[in-house]
Design a binder for these strands. Structure first.
Lengths: 226, 226, 226, 226
DNA sequence: GATGAATGAGCATTCATTCAT
DNA sequence: CATGAATGAATGCTCATTCAT
């Protein structure tokens, strides 16, 4: 069964650097600093929202200078955007990993259930391990502007395609209800995200992960064919 | 069966006026202006977010003066807060109305199902009829600050109590799964809100109301005891 | 010897009313309200300064409406001005009264001393009895603008003339040092006012009146001829 | 005899910079700008009062940008406060210098007189050389708010202590009247300040310095034991 | 006379961004 | 690459004053 991946870190591929400044050799020093900036920016965004976070807050948190921030990212939106894109990618990776651990060639009810639950697990686990990042990613899609937007849409398309491809056989075989993909997605992620939001805001006391199985089962009951 | 209430309007009880200024007689003129301001502010908030909306935008939309805005509400936060509180109340009223149309003394599976579905219907219908207000209310609880916060918490407590009381018999009889109220709430509203958010953002094309029954059925399947 | 006049009240002659609005019959009702307004305005001015006091503060303190305030005084400056002029007059009256109790036809050292001390007593006593008003009057001459200014200068001239006339014989006889009137005034009132300012600001704990005789004696020692 | 120090300039120690931003190296460039800002702010405050001076006036006078003003001082109050504190310090320095030029180990009437007169001279001279700053300092203690306030009180305490220590021997020996320090201070500075205020406001024509000796003698006559 | 809604110029302050060193 | 001073448009809010009811 799919386990709980421990110890995520906010780590990103070199592409991030490439996207922002086209400097030929993003030295590892530079990359390290960028990550630190993103890490701290995330904390600020979580606490005050993107609009409520000022460049100065990030500067203070990262112990650098305004100039340095701009040298690395160009402007505030680029920071917010990079954070979103990397988060999306990080989450997508986990989800793919969870699905990869399953076999979608054996078309049984059990496998279908495992697939649906894997979606829920991936959400619950990623959110639980990266609560701030998760909160940010699931509520700041608008943060991505300019050139990054197209790229995000591409990424997102591939991601959806991947999930779609994985489940297609089960839908065809009639093991999962034939609903629009968007409805499926909402039924699977909606309860988790809604609970997570209240939990992260401190309004719910019991941590999300404690309801991991409940949400998984609920999703499966909603989507299975009977 | 519970029908779709047509023609909601952003209309609020006199209490709104009372909360802001304790003037003895909030003339209907004054009340009317306050409502108009809230109406327009909502549009601005929907389009640009609360932080992204400037007082000047609201001023222009309402065709009044800055002074008048401040005369009636004191500050920007108070506008945002009043909008949230009134929205909450409006939604709660609809939900109560839907539940009131059902009989929770006959403890059958059918009635339990109707109860759960009523919750979904209320969400779907209110969101469909007040999309902007809904979007605002479901994502700006933080807008309520200061004295209004306590009041909101009180209101909210009563609201939850009411729902709780309605469903208690069914839970006792074992017709609905005995889950924490917060989980129940997330399972019922999560899919609807998640779908609604994407739909309102223009990312989903099919309107929420078209999936009304699907979401209702999904909720019931998740929560019923088997 | 000159005693301490008890129980001053902020009371003004009908002229105040006349100066502001030229209404034919300033009914006693109206006059009463004006006095109440001035009384409260004084408290506000004392606490926040004239510039720091808003019309709304005065409105709240007087439990009336903005409109009423403007009906009675025309504008904020007029309130500040009236307060200054009345204060000046009230103080001048006390001073004249104190001098009137003495005999300036007997040109002895004793009488000269009594005259000088009367000036100090008048200052100490008036300030002690009307601390707020005193603080206001001695530091807000600039508050008087427009038409009231000329009138004030006239009043002030008469006042100075009166004092001048009273002391002239003693100066001629060589019982008091022949210094410019302005220097005399500064030596007599300076210490009292300086002490009073610090006392009123809470920086000095011992009340002004306890040093009444000390200041009087100091003034006399400074000014007497030897 | 104590002479008249010519050519004061508004110059302040590095501490000013330190108090506002704790940046490691307040470059001399930065310090220079701060001084220029204070210099111009003083002129504005003198002409319109602190409340009557707008940030925009200071900006125009200093030929910089609003942002720069805030970069250096944080807010308007900080400008007003720094000006007061520096003024206090500048005056205190002069006074100490004047006292340092005298010998308080020879306990004669002559020396006591010289001491008292030094206090008056310091006041007259500083006010005459820095009329605007003096006027500001002697009437805007309230300008100091927040953290600077404590520091001011400390400074002030040391200052008073210093004066107290200098005069203590003379008081003990019975050469100067044993009055509370506050009364002594009022008698010495009161006449000078009162005269200065009227002079600076343009109501008195003869300059303060012309009465230097008169005020000094008056103070001595008031305070000497006989 | 009283009331309080309306007005809008004015103000302190913030903040993303640029750029010289 | 780093630094932090400089910039100025933008923003939330205040407040004296007017005026219709």
């Amino acid at each position: 069964m799919i386990g709980l991946d421990k110890g995520f870190v906010l780590k990103m591929n070199e592409d991030v650097a490439l996207e922002v400044s086209l400097s030929p050799k993003p030295s590892s020093r530079s990359l390290q600093k960028k990550q630190q900036i993103l890490q701290q920016a995330l904390l600020c965004f979580s606490e005050h929202g993107v609009q409520g976070t000022t460049i100065d807050m990030i500067r203070e948190a990262t112990q650098t200078s305004v100039g340095s921030l701009y040298h690395h990212f160009g402007n505030k939106d680029a920071i917010a955007g990079a954070l979103f894109i990397e988060g999306m990618r990080d989450f997508a990776e986990l989800l793919k990993q969870y699905l990869a651990g399953l076999d979608n060639t054996v078309l049984t009810k059990t496998q279908a259930c495992a697939g649906v639950k894997a979606l829920v697990y991936a959400n619950v686990d990623w959110i639980s391990n990266q609560p701030d990042w998760a909160n940010y990613v699931f509520h700041h899609r608008a943060a991505v502007k300019g050139p990054g937007k197209l790229r995000l849409e591409g990424d997102h398309g591939h991601f959806y395609q991947h999930i779609n491809d994985w489940f297609a056989p089960f839908l065809e075989k009639g093991l999962i209800q034939e609903l629009p993909l968007e409805v499926l997605a909402s039924v699977v992620t909606g309860p988790v995200h809604t609970y997570a939001r209240h939990w992260l805001a401190g309004r719910y006391k019991v941590s999300l992960v404690e309801h991991r199985e409940v949400f998984a089962e609920a999703a499966w009951q909603s989507l299975k064919c009977r």
